[in-house]
Write a protein that binds this DNA or RNA. Structure first.
Length: 437
RNA sequence: UCCUGAGUAGCUCAAUGGCAGAGCAUCCGGCUGUUAACCGGAGGGUUGUAGGUUCGAGUCCUACCUCAGGAGCCA
């Protein structure tokens, strides 16, 4: 009998099949046993009736514990009470291994315990749903760029210097006489590949050694970063909203069951379509000012500073879809931003804030084209000039207007799944003080 | 790094300064349609660590450790 996956079980109704997996839970009712069996692709309920099996087989079930690995044979049929749901009448059981008492019991657990047992927590329904959405988001990301003329060009993870000079980086000893740093962004390299290939993107892990301790932060997260030659800020904002809508559509098409398990109200996602609201930093500052005066925001907003987390939450709460805030003061943004020709104190940049307090999911902008300006900015930011020689070369040899953005996969998944914390959006989250498992 | 809160059975949580308990998990028994199944029984504790106050501390005080939530910074 050939192995069948639970996700395909509908194709085998009335047939005898073999399922190889683990015992998710077992309920016994005297002469009846109900086994919830999972095989990674799904969960199915197996039923054994004492009168239908041999005494020896019946007693074999008594040793089973939660998460024991088993191979079962049975005949599939529809659930007597639930149309569209399938069950398995078990006719044989092979015990591969009896599991020791499983730590994650069918009751609630605290986050500390679950995090320290992340390697086991991965087996739960909820984690399955989230990580399936993550995989779908990643597929959508690749499909979107691959089918729109972008070329995937991976950028290095070991880098010689800080990309933006702002965040703290993980330092790595590089053969004793040099220091390397784990990349916090592939962006600068993207600019080189964009000059070579036009429309490019990079997708990979990113590292930030900031001691951030919030529901929106990981020290290792996955980021997708497109870079487009000859695109301006307006073009970038249009690309961003189309990109997000494409991802949403793909998840809504393919992950209905997962969103249901997560009890995510998908109606708020369904109504999201372009155009997304665009507000300037100045408009945002006015909104925050008014909010403070009316008591909706506790702390006053200081004009000229970056938006704080409560500020972002307030602004995003005023809209029913992601909102794009553009043209921040240049001094709170990275050194490579192109100045706004209308007001040189502002940068041609944009942050996309997700609804429901999920924070910034996209950050990007138009890149500076002038060699002299970049050199000046590098000095102002006290960055080591030697490390940026090659980057400055891009302005010497055919400088060109271009724009790009970065999107954090976990924040995007967290928003779509309605998660309280991004740590659930990645199989093994790396956080401040969390390196294990 | 700062602010706030929490550490009691494997897990989730109770316990006026006065006998350390329940549910789940484990083990034993019962139950022919269960759905975090249910019913009966059993075992399971250096109350985060170190001091202190007190006749008496899980409970009050001090320090430290760990974790959680928030801030800053960011995607």
């Amino acid at each position: 009998m050939e192995q069948v996956y639970i996700s395909d079980i509908g194709k085998y109704v009335g047939e005898e099949v073999t399922i190889k997996g683990w015992l998710y839970n077992i309920r016994s009712s005297g002469k009846l046993r109900f086994l919830e069996i999972r095989d990674g692709s799904g969960i199915i309920q197996g039923v054994v009736s004492k009168k239908d099996v041999s005494e020896e087989l019946w007693t074999r079930f008594e040793t089973l514990t939660q998460e024991s690995s088993i191979i079962v044979q049975g005949r599939t049929r529809e659930h007597p009470k639930r149309p569209g749901v399938f069950e398995l009448d078990i006719i044989n059981l092979q015990i591969v291994a009896v599991a020791e008492p499983y730590p994650i019991t069918p009751k609630e657990h605290g986050i500390e315990f679950l995090m320290s047992n992340r390697h086991l927590w991965l087996r739960s329904r909820r984690t399955h749903a989230i990580l399936r959405v993550r995989a779908q988001v990643i597929r959508a990301v690749r499909d979107f760029f691959d089918s729109n003329g972008f070329l995937l060009l991976d950028t290095p993870i070991l880098t010689p210097a800080a990309c933006e000079g702002t965040t703290t980086l993980f330092e790595v000893d590089y053969f004793g006489d040099a220091k390397a740093y784990l990349a916090q962004s592939g962006q600068l390299y993207n600019e080189a590949t964009a000059a070579a290939f036009g429309r490019v993107y990079t997708f990979g892990p990113t590292f930030r050694a900031e001691k951030s301790k919030t529901r929106r932060h990981l020290t290792e997260f996955w980021m997708v970063e497109p870079e487009i030659a000859y695109m301006d800020l307006d073009g970038l904002m249009e690309l961003s909203e189309n990109f997000i809508c494409y991802i949403l559509r793909r998840v809504l098409e393919n992950c209905r069951a997962e969103l249901e398990i997560l009890e995510r109200d998908s109606t708020s996602l369904e109504k999201i379509e372009p155009p997304f609201p665009r507000i300037s930093y100045d408009e945002a500052a006015r909104m925050l000012d008014d909010a403070h005066k009316s008591g909706a925001l506790e702390n006053p907003f200081e004009y000229g500073s970056d938006l704080g987390s409560p500020d972002e939450t307030y602004i995003s709460s005023q809209f029913d879809r992601p909102v794009m805030v553009h043209r921040y003061p240049a001094k709170v943004k990275a050194f490579y931003m192109e100045p706004d020709p209308q007001d040189s104190t502002k940068a041609l940049c944009v942050d996309m804030l997700a609804p429901e307090g999920c924070g910034e999911i996209i950050g990007g902008g138009q890149r500076a084209t002038s060699y002299d300006l970049l050199l000046q900015r590098i000095e102002e930011h006290n960055l080591p000039r030697e490390a940026f020689d090659w980057y400055l070369d891009l302005r010497r040899y055919g400088t060109f207007p271009h724009s790009g953005f970065g999107m954090g996969i976990e924040r995007c998944v967290g928003w779509i799944c309605g998660l309280e914390h991004v740590r659930e959006a990645i199989p093994f989250p790396r956080m401040l003080y969390h390196l294990k498992p």
